[in-house]
Amino acid sequence: MFSVIVPVYRNAEFVPQLIAEFSGISAIAAERYGMPVEVVFVVDASPDDSYELLERALPQAPFRSQLLLHARNFGAFAAIRTGLRAARGDYFAVINADLQEPPELLLQFLDRLVRDDMDIAVGVREGRDDPGMSRLAANLFWAFYRRFVVKEIPSGGVDVFGCNRRIRDELLRLEEANSSLVGLVYWLGFRRCEVPFQRRARAHGKSTWTLAKKVTYFMDSVFAFTDLPIRVFTVLGALGVVLAACLGVFVFVMRLTGQIAAAGYTTTILVITFFGALNTLGLGLLGSYAWRSYENTKKRPLALVRSACFFDGASGPVSLYTGRRS
């Protein structure tokens, strides 16, 4: 079985299109590979009526599905993990509910995975049908991500991927809080291929992937996958020591030659301010690492499922239960 995980947040307008697109994907997968498709929708406590619309639509859908509701908003990556854990297939793929990634990409993932010569297939954007400022911001974000976090990331970034059961199981073993799922996919290694696609324009509403979320995601990735902040701070500290030593020698020589009658107030204030700011920056960086380490020692679940419902392809709900951990 092929399981497709769809995190849902503020995507109510897309529900009819999602059902139609996955109906087509299910039919093609059954015809081409003789494989049923299961779609796992994880509603991340969306404030709109996404859950209610899916709850009404899925019993009539021609494909197997699960509908999971988070107890609160845990974030898109936590929703993907919840879906991967609940999925029952042999192959898995992740796609966003706004359908800016073409659903046909799922079949391309499956085609590579069933050959058993690849463990992971990642979707690589060859272009984006987005507004100019959105393209610029996205390109800058992924350029920094590639430069400072994961050098193997394609220049266009990665949002969607497919994998086999071995990779799914390995990902779920890595229960890291405040990390990056995409970073973990690349950290795992294994046999990986890239599947190019053209990102489509968003049909409804605005993206919830805001600048603040991008900054948070970038910082989480930096602290989770690189020691760059520590190395930068170390270099700054070394430069500060060298600068202070040079300044001390200069002041001492000037004092001995009688060119300085009294110590300079301005110089003293600047030096104190510089090293005070440097110390504060260092404490902030070290505190970020310490806080993330502490968060992971708590062993809290990365998400909680308030309710879950199974649908067996136009035959109504199979079971309903609550209180699940992820």
Rank of each mutant, 00 (worst) to 15 (best):
E295P: 02
V232A: 09
S293D: 13
T322Q: 15
A45N: 11
S315F: 01
F225D: 09
G132M: 12
V251K: 00
P59K: 05
Q100A: 03
L105S: 08
A30F: 10
V305K: 01
I167H: 05
S26P: 05
A245D: 04
V242G: 09
L113G: 03
L54T: 03
I153P: 02
A61S: 09
A177M: 11
Y33C: 08
G89T: 06
I80H: 14
I5K: 07
G205F: 02
F311A: 02
I25H: 08
L278N: 05
M219I: 10
F63M: 09
C309E: 12
W142D: 06
F310R: 14
K298Q: 14
R202F: 02
V251A: 08
R128K: 08
K214N: 14
V42I: 04
C309Y: 08
D312K: 09
Q60L: 09
T226H: 07
V37N: 05
R255L: 12
Y91L: 11
G205K: 04
N178P: 03
E152S: 15
A138F: 07
G316D: 03
G313L: 03
A93H: 03
M254Q: 15
D48K: 04
V253H: 10
N139G: 07
D130A: 11
A121S: 11
N296P: 10
P301A: 01
E52A: 15
Y9C: 02
S221C: 02
I19L: 09
Q198T: 10
T297S: 10
D227K: 08
D116Q: 14
D220H: 13
E176Y: 15
R168S: 04
R325W: 11
Q108M: 10
A79W: 01
R200D: 10
F310M: 07
A12I: 00
G313T: 10
R115I: 00
G157T: 02
L113T: 08
G276N: 04
V160F: 06
N279Q: 04
Q108N: 13
D111W: 04
R306A: 13
N178Q: 15
A224D: 05
D159I: 00
T257L: 15
R64Q: 13
R125F: 01
F109A: 06
S315C: 00
A76I: 11
L243T: 12
R128Q: 11
S288N: 13
W142R: 02
L110P: 02
T266Y: 12
R147G: 02
T267N: 15
P229Q: 01
Y289G: 08
V251G: 00
F161C: 02
L320D: 06
L211A: 11
R32M: 08
Y186S: 08
T322A: 08
R72Q: 15
D119E: 14
T267F: 14
A86P: 08
F14V: 02
F2A: 09
M35G: 09
L211Y: 11
R300Q: 14
G83K: 05
L136H: 12
I272A: 15
Y145R: 03
P36F: 01
V241S: 11
R56S: 15
L281R: 03
R166Q: 14
Y33P: 10
R147L: 13
C309H: 05
V249R: 07
K213G: 00
L243P: 00
T208N: 14
D227N: 14
R135G: 00
D119F: 02
N164M: 02
V43E: 06
R165H: 09
A308F: 06
S180N: 09
